[in-house]
Design a protein around this nucleic acid. Structure first.
Length: 478
RNA sequence: CGGGACGUGGCGAAGUUUGGUAUCGCGCUUGGUUUGGGACCAAGAUGCCGCUGGUUCGAGUCCAGUCGUCCCGACCA
């Protein structure tokens, strides 16, 4: 049997210190361990299993839309990184460089990829000649490195795992469609698999990805009222194609520049799950990505027949769900606390009394509701309960977001909300960068996105009073 | 990169002011009793006190440097 480590120290409560609560959960649920390199963490089996489930689901969604997986190198020569000037300006400050190979100093230093646009461009240039070669719908699952100054597990590490999709199309329209299609995939995934409501929209020019024409985002609201950008999708136009001289012969036999997109989601999603659903007892995992969906706890396991029954149920239920049976000799109470901390959606208790009545007790992680379930109904009841947990945590998150979303019509209102009420602020904006910067500087909020679902809150910009263009979500962000 | 806190068995801490035998709780090992909300008894094992140098008869403690971690800002997935 595995380790039987005891977690006697309580998790710091969220209200007391949210940041401490977060690191407590991350450590005590055994998701990560720190290493000797700042910002580089070990993702432990339980944490990695969550990522594998995220990965498996997204990968299937991508492939259903015709995307293919590839794998680019980890190194980018400096000259290649330098080709698109906005792009390099955006990333240069945070790249790690390789300057030696063995004992030899390299003639040209290599950066460890912070993102792979340049590599994809170089590759596309060499494989695309004709419109018949388009589109290419590529994706890769790799890690990237960004030398961040401040690091936090999952939310900001120097190396992180992600997928980056890179597509290239014959027309701008097709590329734009792809950008939105993938944004919708992320929204679908967050809401229906992670039970996490998101706001979908486009970034302002100031917040745009380096080298993109448009950056689309889904923004989620964490328990403490801070926003988290959970995935992005970029439309590049033909800017990269021009910088990298990618051209194709179209049907009319004229050389044209193709249009590109890129889109990504990272291990940050695990941080989002923790901070969206977690509570003072620890993690609460969305059933669809929980490594263990049901944990069986034998009660009075020394009594005759209990362990056998528990094991029999485990074998039976493994066809229905991801199930685990804890047969260690820790006390039942210890196990209850342990699996609550690990966020397992359902706990199944089976003891002598239950066996006598041919039933078991099932307890939901999200609200601790208790169900007595006849053993022969488990195959139907468990999927139902998992679905209820999914809906329960989605609704809780949705309602909390609604309670923490405020409307500001004037600068003073906005400042007051920003200072006193954590959450999203909806306010009108004139479109000027100056106002955006002023709100950041004076109220401490950044623009999260211009949501697709617009509301006309007022006619005037919340900052300068001039005629407003759009309604924006503002907030403090991770 | 600025401001703050910190580094002592696996984990969490005390000890540092005033230099003098390395402490406590948890975990771990063995045996026994327990088991429906973090059980108990007994016996054990585990320390380059972050690292380097200095002061001193003697340094976890004082001095200098260095590395790293966490939190709050600025920047970022």
């Amino acid at each position: 049997m595995g380790q039987q480590k005891k977690m006697v120290d309580d998790i710091t409560s969220m209200d007391e210190d949210f940041a401490k609560w977060y690191t407590d959960v991350v450590k005590k649920a055994e998701l990560i361990e720190y290493t000797s390199v700042k910002g580089c963490m070990v993702i432990r089996p339980y944490g990695y299993a969550i990522w594998e489930n995220i990965q498996a689901t997204l990968d299937r969604m991508f492939k259903d839309l015709g995307h293919e997986n590839v794998c680019m190198p980890m190194f980018i020569p400096e000259s290649l990184l330098n080709k698109e000037k906005d792009h390099v300006a955006g990333f240069a400050p945070e790249v790690a460089w390789v300057t030696y190979g063995g004992n030899e100093k390299l003639e040209e230093r290599l950066c460890v990829r912070p993102t792979s646009e340049t590599l994809f461009c170089e590759h596309y240039k060499s494989i695309i000649q004709s419109y018949r070669d388009l589109p290419k719908l590529y994706n890769q699952w790799v890690s990237v490195v960004r030398w961040e100054k401040t690091t936090r597990p999952f939310l900001r590490s120097r190396e992180f795992l992600w997928q980056e999709g890179h597509t290239i199309h014959a027309s701008a329209e097709e590329a734009k469609e792809e950008t939105i299609r993938m944004l919708n995939v992320y929204e679908d995934f967050c809401e229906n698999y992670l039970a996490m409501p998101v706001v979908k929209g486009v970034k302002t020019e100031k917040e745009r990805f380096a080298g993109a024409e448009d950056t689309y985002t889904i923004e989620a609201l964490m328990h403490d009222g801070k926003a988290l950008q959970s995935a992005t999708s970029h439309y590049f136009g033909d800017g990269f194609a021009k910088a990298f001289e990618i051209q194709f012969a179209d049907k009319d036999n004229k050389l044209k520049y193709p249009f590109q997109t890129s889109w990504g989601a990272t291990t940050r999603l695990i941080g989002a799950i923790i901070m969206t659903h977690g509570d003072d007892n620890g993690l609460v995992l969305p059933p669809k990505i929980a490594p263990t969906q049901v944990v069986i706890i034998p009660i009075a396991a020394h009594k005759e027949g209990v362990l056998e029954k528990a094991e029999e149920l485990r074998a039976r239920l493994s066809k229905t769900c991801r199930v685990k049976c804890d047969t260690t000799d820790n006390s039942a109470g210890w196990k209850f606390a342990e699996y609550e901390m690990k966020g397992v959606p359902l706990r199944l208790e089976i003891g002598p009394k239950d066996i006598e009545n041919n039933q078991c007790v099932i307890v939901r992680r999200d609200n601790r509701e208790k169900y007595f379930v006849p053993l022969d109904e488990l195959e139907t009841k468990i999927p139902e309960l998992l679905e209820l947990v999914h809906k329960g945590i989605y609704e809780k998150a949705f309602n909390r977001r609604a309670e923490m979303t405020f409307v500001a019509k004037t600068f003073d209102e906005l400042k007051d909300i920003a200072d006193n009420k954590p959450g999203f602020i909806k306010a009108m904006w004139c479109g000027e960068r100056e106002c955006e910067e002023k709100l950041k500087e004076i109220a401490g909020v950044s623009s999260r996105c211009i949501p697709f679902e617009q509301e006309k809150i007022s006619e005037k910009c919340v900052c300068c009073g001039r005629p407003a263009k759009d309604m924006l979500y503002w907030g403090k962000a991770y």
